[in-house]
Nucleic acid binder design. Structure first.
Lengths: 208, 208
DNA sequence: TTGCGATGTATCGGGCCGATACATCGGGGC
DNA sequence: GCCCCGATGTATCGGCCCGATACATCGCAA
């Protein structure tokens, strides 16, 4: 999953590890605080070995403001390769069970603007099914095993059930929008002025 | 965290691995579908080695209905030891950063009826702080980096923010109840008839 | 000038997961 | 009567990911 995220970010612009971590924190802020370095650097190594990414020459047209980083072990900037772009498209399109859990769904959703509507619908519906199953499990427990559980456990289940119901409603709204060819509406209360282009709302501007 | 959960369940009754997994699935159903065997059995081995749990003699008063399991490798029933009970109390009381993330908080909350009000309040407030930090991070991103992100990413952040706000409200309700010496109220719409004893709402009844 | 926080890369031990293997038992379909 | 399948049950293995830790530089403030 992290593989998909890294590939996705490097498709926007070349970056080094530290920068990637910060970008991940803001873009996937919903999912986790920040990715661990103990995961990030080994993964970068793995991706490089697989040929999906490569080290970008920082020495060449190093015209920009970035100081030359006079230390011995300078920053390592990675860029995505042609094979990496294919890999990204594959990962983004193909779905498995892990696509529908919290992290997997979140990462896929983040890159929704880079894939087609059919894939988006498939993933949204898969996620909905997943959350519905969870919801039914919780309802089952609350209905049948309620007398076996103490008040706190019950309260936790109720809170979880509430979150499930809420997410299902959210997903259904998104699915409806998707089917009618709309991008996610900015203001859900007043959608008349949203004349934004439906596909690829913003073509990922270069980092400031 | 799994260590705490296992110890907590074994304090209710001796169990074997398969049974533990099912109990975990219903009691902690909010957190995960089910614990993996690849985690469960090594953990049981580790806990046994540490002396927190021990194998219960199934041969002794094996009077009950359970068939003798004629296979060579029969089921292995574990029970908690005296040291294990101490360990459980320690784990339940002492708090660290991991106590406040989703899994850690969920496990602690599940066993809230086995600890004192001071600890409960500490954990609830720690969790609230954690979720509030997350909420502020999301607000920050939505306020300052909104123009850098596409519509789907924004929608995800908004949904995450909504979940955070909702959980904070939930936690504050629980904290208020806790401070006023009430157990979590069964029906939030009508709380007049809840004359349940404030501490230890149900003293974990033995499994049927 | 000293020291601290941000920037930056990297490793290590350990927890947890999914896949897999192996073995028994009860029941439903043919 | 027989066979297969799903539930019950224990266990290992490779791999992802995390937290702790180490090391090194830079800019700024006390």
């Amino acid at each position: 999953m992290l593989e998909l995220a890294i590939l996705g970010l490097l498709q926007e612009a070349p970056m080094h590890g530290y920068e990637l971590r910060k970008e991940l924190a803001t873009k996937l802020g919903t999912l986790r605080a920040a990715i661990s370095y103990g995961t990030l650097y080994p993964t970068l190594k793995r991706l490089k070995l697989a040929g999906w990414i490569s080290e970008a020459d920082t020495t060449e047209t190093d015209s920009d403001i970035i100081p030359p980083m006079t230390s011995k072990r300078g920053r390592v900037v990675y860029k995505i390769t042609a094979e990496g772009k294919e890999r990204f498209a594959d990962l983004l399109t193909q779905t498995g069970p892990e696509t529908y859990d919290d992290t997997g769904f979140g990462v896929h959703f983040t890159f929704f603007s880079r894939t087609d509507r059919a894939t988006r619908l498939r993933i949204l519906e898969g996620r909905r099914r997943r959350v519905e199953e969870r919801r039914e499990g919780l309802r089952e427990v609350l209905a049948r095993a309620a007398d076996r559980l103490d008040a706190y456990t019950l309260e936790l289940q109720r809170h979880g059930l509430d979150a499930c119901e809420r997410e299902v409603r959210w997903l259904e709204e998104l699915i409806t929008n998707e089917r009618s060819g709309r991008a996610p509406s900015r203001s859900r209360t007043f959608t008349s002025e949203t004349a934004t282009p439906p596909e690829h709302p913003r073509p990922h501007p270069d980092r400031p």
